[in-house]
């Protein structure tokens, strides 16, 4: 088992942000995490990356608690938001730094990032700008590319398609499909139901901090999710 949630509960004051008695993910699975704003998706991802401490329970990565054993950091590439970027570096500097933390030398970083080059901001001016001076979309591409090229066994992305231009969304989907075929496990949270059902083989639906559905993607998944979100205000489940 790659990831295993055991009796996880996380509250912010009186509000229960996440309550997951059990949830697991096998190696090679590509899981899409969907849910409305405030449903608990980001909390779910932050718990996996040990950026939040659960009130009860634990998250296991390959059988070891992520809070106690940090070996998951060797195998995981992740990008949740701009706090994953070091904004006063240029794009090459940031990629070099990220690579070095995984033991890659400068030349190794260049070859490791090469397959994702068409996803990075390409203009000479952009590559020389500090990340803080890039547009939201371009900064996001840098963060995602850095996660893609270091991910060994798990890739965790939060809303990767938001703020990307259409060509970049298409390229990202291609990269994710290629990595998925190569056996990389992925956990992708997204509001874009079309993209997430295109890329993922399994969909976990979260609502009000609980897992409402967890099933393999099928022909009907997209329509079913659409009808769920359309009726969510009324509290109905189809």
């Amino acid at each position: 088992m790659l990831l295993d949630f055991q009796h996880i509960r996380k509250s912010y004051g009186a509000k229960i942000a996440l309550d997951v008695p059990a949830w697991s993910m096998q190696p090679g699975e590509v899981v899409g995490l969907v849910g409305s704003n405030g449903a608990g998706k980001t909390t779910f991802l932050r718990l996996i990356l040990d950026l939040l401490q659960p009130d009860t329970g634990q998250v296991l990565f390959e059988g070891r608690s992520v809070a106690e054993d940090e070996s998951w950091r060797l195998a995981t590439g992740s990008f949740l938001d701009r706090s994953f970027l070091i904004e006063y570096l240029t794009i090459p500097e940031f990629l070099e730094f990220t690579g070095a933390t995984y033991g890659l030398r400068r030349a190794d970083v260049t070859s490791a990032i090469a397959p994702f080059a068409n996803f990075l901001p390409v203009s000479t001016a952009d590559s020389r700008r500090y990340i803080r001076d890039l547009s939201t979309g371009n900064a996001k591409k840098v963060g995602i590319a850095a996660a893609l090229f270091v991910a060994q066994r798990l890739l965790v992305l939060d809303e990767p398609f938001a703020n990307l231009d259409p060509p970049s969304q298409i390229r990202l989907k291609e990269h994710l499909s290629r990595l998925s075929q190569a056996g990389l496990s992925m956990l992708i949270s997204s509001h874009d139901l079309g993209h997430v059902t295109d890329v993922c083989t399994r969909i976990t639906l979260i609502g009000r901090g609980e897992i409402l559905r967890d099933e393999a993607r099928s022909e009907e998944t997209l329509e079913s999710l659409k009808s769920y979100f359309a009726s969510e205000d009324a509290g109905e489940l189809t």
Partner: peptide, 10 residues
Amino acid sequence: SYYPALVTRN
């Protein structure tokens, strides 16, 4: 501002 970047990497 980038502490999560440091603690999630190797």
